[in-house]
Amino acid sequence: MTGRQLFDGIEYNREQYTDWRQVVDHAAEFFISHRFAEKAYFEYVKKDLEDNEAYMVIVPHIVLLHSAPEHGALRNAFHFMKLEHPVNFCHECNDPVRIVLSFACTSSQEHLESIERLAAMLMDENFVSRIFEISSEPELKEYLQEISVSL
């Protein structure tokens, strides 16, 4: 499956959020409107973040919003959102969050492949520093599409 687009949605977000829950709700809208996940899926995400010290902020300034397939995932989908205004997620050391990656998965080989590609991206220091610099949606889309097909 190498070469296919990794992200089903890419967004450069200029909102000024005051609470991380608003960020999760905004990501949720994309998944709900496209029928990629049910509303409940992101309620589980919020609960897991609250109960487990925001552990989904897995890299400094990057959060990976996700829950389990049985919590309302309807199909495999990935979303990439860059926040112009960083938001604190109450993580012990990786705040503030500037990149919000979200996925829904229904447990399959395709999901494993997507996660592998995502991990490869995040392990690449050049990718991470470049992505933090980008300041417009067209530029973000162009860069991610270019990177996606090369992985």
């Binding site: 897991d48 552990y55 897995i58 996700h66 829950s67 389990a68 494993l112 392990m123």
Partner: peptide
């Protein structure tokens, strides 16, 4: 180990394997 076993723990597995 992570909460759901589908995202963070999978990414961590790849990093740990490499390490």
């Amino acid at each position: 180990v992570c909460i759901n076993g589908m995202g963070s723990s999978l990414i961590l597995k790849m990093t740990v394997e490499k390490a």
